[in-house]
Structure formats: C-alpha cells, structure tokens
Amino acid sequence: MFKRLFSFANAKPAKAPDGVRIYAIGDVHGCADLLNALLERIYDEALKRPSHASALVMLGDYVDRGPRSDAVLQTLVTLKERSPVPVRFLAGNHDDTLLEFLADPAVGETWCEFGGRETLMSYRVTPPARGADIEAWRAAQIELRAVMPQSHVNFLQGLEESVTLGDYTFVHAGARPGVALDEQSRRDRLWIRGEFLNDTRPFERMVVHGHTPADEPHSDKRRIGVDTGAYATGVLTAVVLDGEERGFLQTRRVAAKGPILVEALAA
C-alpha cells in the first residue's frame, strides 16, 4: 500500500512520530457519504492494529459546496466526543466564513457565491436571491442560528489553525515561503494559494494541506496536498503517514447514487 519516500541530496525524509500512523483527510465540503466511508476504513485499520498507535487530522473546509454540510458537522462533533483514536480538527476558510455569516449577515452574499448556499439548504434554510438586500440576509442568518445545533457552532469555534506531528505540519491552505511555520498568520494558514504552491523553497517541516483541489493528490519534497475536489469529483482523499512511508486512501463515488469504493494508492 505504501512506498518509502524518495531521497533528496541534502535532506532526510520526513518522518511521523515513532510508532504512530497518521491519517490526514482533505476538504470534505459537505460530502457526508464519502467522509463516512473513509472514516470507516480508517477506523477499521486502526482498531485492527492495537499495538500501533494511530492519529487522525482533519484539514478543514467541512462545509459548503456539497449537499450535506449539516451531516458532516454532526459526524465530526460525534467523532470529537467519541473517537477511539486522537483526532485534531483544523479550520478551513469556508468554515471561518460560515462563522463570519453567523456574526454578520452582510457576509452572506459573498459566502453564498462560493458555496454557502448549499450549506444553508442543508439546514433547510432558503438562501436569499442573488442581489437581495441586507434584510433578506439578516432573516436567513436568524433562521440559520435558530436551526443550527449549538454543538455545530461550538465545534467550528474550537477549530485549530495548525498541528505539528513529527516532521509534519498540518494546515488547511499552506504557508508563506520565507516565514517559519510556527509564525504563520491565520490568514495565510487558511487562505494562501499561489505564493505557497509556486515556490520551491522547502520549509523546516513537511507541510500537509488541502484547500487547492487537484485531480490527484500531490506529494513532493516540501508539501503533500490532499484536496481532490470531493464535491465536484466524488473523490475524497486521505494521506497516510507511517515512519518514513506515505500513501493515500480514497473513497470514490462511482455514480451519482452508486456505491462508494475505498482505494489505496502509492505516494
């Protein structure tokens, strides 16, 4: 399933903490079916290896674009309360924007232009028409606040910006080149794209991220990207890190209402 990292002339391979297998899941974006299938596979693997510790990192963007943001958040709330393995939950820019809308209805129109409309509908709130006035957005905000479980809000408010495990730093979007990973701004951790992706300088640790969708997961000497655009492609990806080895797990929707397959890919 996995293969050893290729070597670099002046760098040693990144390594997970001794004895710990790490799973990091990319952007879910309301795809509850894909998430549940992937979690089932991950927990089945973890519980079959009781002598080997496991850890799970969720890389953010749980809401928007896909049809069931409400169900995704409920799954993650339950996971936070009852997971048999440690789980860390990172904030994504979409998760942050949902919180902004709950505080300020003026955010609504912009939020709905990049996925918030589907989140409102998942909670049975009718989105205002495009170009609606602030009162329409205020009414939608009030309705969402009334029907959205407080546990979902609390979960979003408690998300972390980044996590470091072994030689890996996990973050939603990436990091600004030339700035130490521990000194990155929240804005860059949740939103950066081109400056991070197009630079070639390695950081002091390997960066694992989502945020920027691609047809296939990305893996090189400085970053691992696991956003495979689940809401559009029907493919949700997790990277698996064990010692100096890395691989990928994917759940794949074969047809709009077809079966979910779990595939293991080499890095």
Rank of each mutant, 00 (worst) to 15 (best):
M1E: 05
F2N: 01
K3G: 10
F6K: 12
A9R: 11
G26T: 08
G26Q: 05
D27H: 09
L35K: 09
L39Q: 15
Y43Q: 03
Y43I: 07
D44C: 09
A46L: 12
A46T: 15
L47R: 07
P50N: 07
P67T: 00
P67M: 02
D70G: 06
V72C: 12
V72A: 15
Q74V: 04
V77E: 08
V77D: 08
R82I: 10
F89M: 15
L99Y: 10
A106H: 07
G115S: 02
E118D: 15
T126H: 01
P127K: 01
P128H: 02
G131L: 10
A136C: 02
W137V: 01
W137L: 03
R138Y: 00
A140P: 00
Q141V: 05
Q141R: 12
E143R: 07
A146W: 02
V147Q: 06
V147P: 01
P149Q: 09
G158H: 05
V163P: 01
D167E: 02
Y168Q: 08
T169Q: 03
V171W: 09
H172N: 13
G174S: 07
G178N: 11
A180E: 13
E183Q: 05
R187P: 02
D188Y: 10
W191L: 13
G194E: 15
F196K: 02
V207N: 06
P217A: 01
D220S: 03
I224H: 09
D227S: 14
V240F: 00
V240W: 00
D242N: 14
G243T: 04
G247N: 04
G247V: 11
L249T: 15
V254T: 14
K257C: 10
V262D: 09
E263Q: 08
